[in-house]
Every structure is written in C-alpha cells, then in structure tokens.
Design a protein around this nucleic acid. Structure first.
Lengths: 339, 339
DNA sequence: TTGAAAGCGTTACCAA
DNA sequence: TTGGTAACGCTTTCAA
C-alpha cells in the first residue's frame, strides 16, 4: 500500500520550480553557485512536495557510498562500543556514516559479514583483530579500499593497523603483581581458539612468569558467556582449590574479575588482602564496584579515534602522503583497590 | 591510489564468461532459471575477477534498499542494545540490514537523524518513544514507509506502536511496596523534560500514591549522567535527610538504584531491612550485585522482536492483512533481594 | 534458458 | 549562473 506511493524526485521539484533538475541538484547542496532567488524557489518547491534526496541514487551516480564499514566481535561489549563511538564521532564531520556489523567472535561469520559489507561499496573497512579466514583476507585485499585491522598488531597485516599488543598489555598487570612482591600468580581466561586477543593475554602471563622464573601453572580456562560473571566465580574456585596459597590472579576481562571477586567474598577470602584480583578492559563499572577493580585500560576509544583519523587521511589522500601503516596505542595499568 | 582501481562489473564477468550480463545477474542469485553449466562458468569467471556484486546499483535499480532504520536514545544502554539486538536478529533471515542511529535523548538530534536516514530510503523505520519535533513527525508521516514507535504508547501514534506504558510499569513496583505494608515511599528520578519515559515512571509513582491515599512528596530529581551511579547516591542522601523514616524508594533505573544502595551501605542503612530500594530496567548486572536488585523488566528484547515481526509482516503484506496498529508488551516485576 | 533494451534518480562534464 | 546529455551498474520486462 504505502510503499506503492511514489515519492517525489528531483525532476518533480524541478518542474514545480520551473528549473532543470541539475539546478535542483546544485541548490540542495551548500557551497554551490546558484542564485539566491532560484535557490529559495527550489527550496520552497521541495518543501511543498516533501522532497527528500535519494542518497542511493546520488551515491550511485557519484560513485561514492558515503560510509565506512566496521566489524566488531560483540555489540554487548562496552570496550568495543567505545571504539565504535569514537570511530563514528571522528567520522561524523566528514559526512561519513558508519555501517556496523558484529561477528560473535567467529571468523566464518566475519567472512560472511565482510562480503556483505563489501557489496555495499564502503569507502574503507575496519575489522577487529588480525585473524581471518583465507577468503576473508582475499576479499579485503581485493576490495580496492583502505583496510584497517584494530585491537591487535598482526604479524602479517593486510594493510593498515591501529592496535596494541594484547601480550604486552597483559604483562603490565603481571609486572604490577610481581613489583608488589608476589610470586604465586594465576590467570583466568576463556576459550583461546576463537579469541586471539584472549590468547595473547594468556601468553603475556606465560612470558612474564617465565621471565621472572615463576610458575605459570595456576591457570583456569572457562567457557565465557556474554555478560556473565559465572566463569570468574568458577575460575577462582578452581584455582583456590588446587593452589590455595595463590596470591594474585588476573582475569581476561573486568567482568570475569568481578565474578571472581564476589566469589572470593562468598568464600571468606579478602580481596585484596588475601588475594589480589586484576581485570582487563577498564570498563566503566569497575570503578564503582567494591572493591574497585585494578585493570588494564587498552584505550578502546583511542583506537576508534585513530582509525577514523587514518581513514580521513587516506580518503583525502592523493596517494602521495604515506601515512604510517601501523599505529600503536599504549595500554596502561589503572591501579585501584582490588590489586 | 587504491580507490582509483576500477572494480570489475557484471559486464566484465559476462564478457569473460561469454554470456550476457543479464545471465550473470540471474546466475548470482539463488532460485533462478540458469542452466547448471552456465552458472558454473559464470561462478568461475566471477571468482577469477574477484567480483563482488554492487548492491548500491542493484538496490537502486530494483527500488529496494534492503535495510530498515532504527533510532535509539543511547548506544551505551544495555536495554536499548537488547532491543536492537533482538530487532536485527529478527530481520536477519529476511536479508534486511539494520541501520542504527542514536539521538542522545534529544528530539532535535532525532529530527536530523531521521532525515538523514530517510535519505537512504529504508524500507521501514523504528523510533524510540512518541516525542518528536513537528518536522520530524511530518517527515515520518510522509516517508511512505511503515513507521514504528517503540518503548512507549503515545497518545497520538504516527503509525504503528510496539511498547508498554511506563506509567503502568512503574506502578508495579509501588504496588509491590504497598503490598509489603509500606506507606512511606519515595522516588528518585531525573530531568523529565527530555525523557518522557522517566516522566511517566514518576507519574506512576504519583498515581499509585494517590490511589492509596499516600503522600507523594518523598521525591528527589537528579541530573542523570550516563553510566554514573552518583545521582542515585545524592538522591537517597537527600531523601533520607529530609524524610529519615522513608521505608522504600524506587529509582528510575537500575544503575541509579545501585548508586542509592551503595550509598545506604556507606551510611549504615541496611538494604532491604531498613529501606527497600527498587530499580527499573532489569539490567543484566542487577542480578549479580549484593544485594541483587528488585526491578521492572520491560521486555526490551521483546520490543525489538515484535518490531521486527511487524515489519516483516508489513513489507510482505499486499495491504490486505490489517496488522494490529498497537502491540503492547507486558512489563513484569522481578523480585530480588533489594526490595 | 537466455538476451536486448529501457529505465531507476542522481551527478559529472561540457556548453551556453 | 544555468541547462543538456551522458553515464553509473544493475534489474525489470518483454521477446526469442
């Protein structure tokens, strides 16, 4: 019904205003040479018809799509949300829209998503991490547009990178534990096969332990469910049961850390006096909890901001200015009560 | 540089495969009559060229955009995120993409956003709430596509509605307080001028109090900052200072409730023994906190799901089936520890 | 099962 | 400052 009603086109506006559609096209954009009187005439005609520009036609005709694509693992993750927000804010001035897709941490889903997004001819594409299927890599390489991998520093980047080393980031926490004199240190993580960033955080644990001649056996891997603290609780239970003298544990995320902390409280273990618990990600909530959570701030918003800046640079670029292929952000330790 | 490289088109694939571009067009879709051998030939040619369909051209040509638009107040709100998630999940099977915009709770920003979205010719649009600028209303009315207002039940709907009465929803909490024998009941809210849903929750407070012949004076309005518990803390301080015998307070959101609870703990007031605190929104976190938060579940995901179903129905519709204009979801009280 | 021609609504380009 | 004309890459429609 409704959909059958044909919307007015530029030609309709042109007719009503008594000008050519080319003039309408110009009058509807700022900074074009149209006499004031014609412009007003056209504006009036457009308002009268309730005309709204069809950007599909406009973008198709001009060859630009006016948006950039970004894929993130999960929409329910405050960190990725921060990246996306900073990213879209950074692009807003450039009249670039952001098309967002989430992969649920699956590379296959990512491949499917990337193809879908590419079909819409974005002017650039941002993906999370450096782990892709072969076909996905190929699609990105052949896309003819700037590609930015984020949240990681892949060994073989496709094109550009804005990220940090998850390995080095997690080392910050363990060095912090060690600086406080602890030696019996543990780690609670998730399924590493699907999440290379989580894996790198674990590797950071192993590296630091090894460097200081400490054991890296105090580990618990849990099935991570979105927005659940249960894995943290199970993880700390299992670690404290097997190694009751554990002094400090880092969790792969703040939420897991919070789960571990509340479980400690339940078990009568004081955090941080008996055991120190560290998180990862610097979620907003962590500062309000009791105890507040010591964590690693990976600079999620910064990643989005830098990615946006890079894209603006690359798109305005004539191909001359060589922007740095790899931009690294600096994770920092946020010292709070829990560790 | 990269952007100058011309991507292959259907014609290129057609040439390479030795067929017409029309045949390529057909071969690339499922369920079309193309002989198996031709289809394979074309597939091979497409792969060889790294061809990816240009949906801009295809959608422009066919007149369908393949996506629906949705606007929400904030991207950082778990409830709205739930709505969006259920919404996009519901539309995924139909090959409909979701274009998301957020208004920051500003009707002016909403107007701007809606116009921007409409320029892309979505096949339907979903907005949050029933409060719009006049021009925004007009744009929506003239859009020629199904419009769905959500999260509320406006008195004068533009078109379709999937929502609930915030007023009735908040009454659930106060009736719960009263059923427990409480009479000295309060409310902590925010700036009502910008948030009609918050205002309706306050009206629910006034209504219920009046109905039971109770005073509705125990109220504190705070400046609400995103992701801050501080307003809850200030609110409860101010209420307990002026009316120390207050028995139960409902907060306009779970986060505010959590702020109020922690402040009570700081002040040596036991929740729920001394004072009961209720929230609103049923955020995932509320169940893990100590005490866990009694709250109103508004069925955020349900709203997204119903909106998606409605859109599918309306789009496949020939205009015959008259789908109900207004779908109401049922908020429920979730009884937990804090009240 | 395949192909040819005619748009879809806008902008780029050149001319007036 | 304006207008005419030719794309843009695909799908629709009709014909073979």
């Amino acid at each position: 019904m409704r959909n059958k009603t044909k919307l007015p086109t530029m030609a309709d506006v042109a007719n009503l205003a008594g000008v050519s559609s080319m003039t309408v096209s110009r009058a509807l954009k700022p900074d074009t040479s149209v006499s004031k009187s014609t412009r007003e005439k056209i504006q009036k005609a457009a308002d009268e018809l309730g005309y709204v520009l069809d950007t599909r036609a406009s973008e198709f005709s001009s060859g630009k799509s006016g948006f950039v694509a970004i894929t993130i693992p999960s929409i329910n993750n405050g960190n990725f949300a921060d990246t996306v927000k900073a990213f879209s804010d950074g692009l807003a001035e450039q009249d670039l829209q952001v098309l967002l897709g989430y992969t649920n941490y699956h590379v296959d889903r990512e491949e499917q998503l990337v193809e879908q997004l590419l079909k819409k001819r974005p002017e650039a594409i941002v993906v999370t991490g450096g782990m892709h299927t072969d076909r996905c890599r190929l699609l990105l390489e052949n896309s003819g547009i700037p590609v930015i991998e984020t949240w990681d520093v892949p060994e073989q980047p496709i094109d550009h990178v804005v990220g940090f080393s998850n390995l080095q980031a997690s080392e910050l926490m363990f060095e912090h534990f060690i600086a406080q004199g602890h030696k019996k240190i543990g780690f609670i993580g998730g399924d590493n096969s699907r999440d290379s960033r989580g894996r790198d955080r674990y590797l950071g644990f192993c590296n630091t332990m090894e460097k200081h001649g400490l054991s890296s056996e105090r580990v618990s891997f849990q099935e991570l469910a979105p927005f659940s603290m249960e894995p943290g609780a199970s993880g700390i239970r299992s670690i404290m049961k097997e190694w009751p003298d554990t002094e400090a544990v880092m969790c792969v995320s703040d939420l897991i850390a919070y789960g571990a902390i509340t479980e400690c409280q339940r078990m009568g273990i004081n955090v941080p006096d008996d055991v120190k618990i560290g998180g990862f990600g610097a979620y907003e909530l962590g500062q309000f909890l009791n105890p507040s959570i010591t964590t690693i701030d990976v600079g999620a918003a910064q990643i989005g901001k830098f990615a946006a800046e890079k894209i603006i640079e690359l798109l305005s670029d004539d191909g001359n200015t060589k922007s740095a292929k790899i931009v690294k952000t600096e994770p920092t330790l946020i010292k709070r009560q829990s560790a």
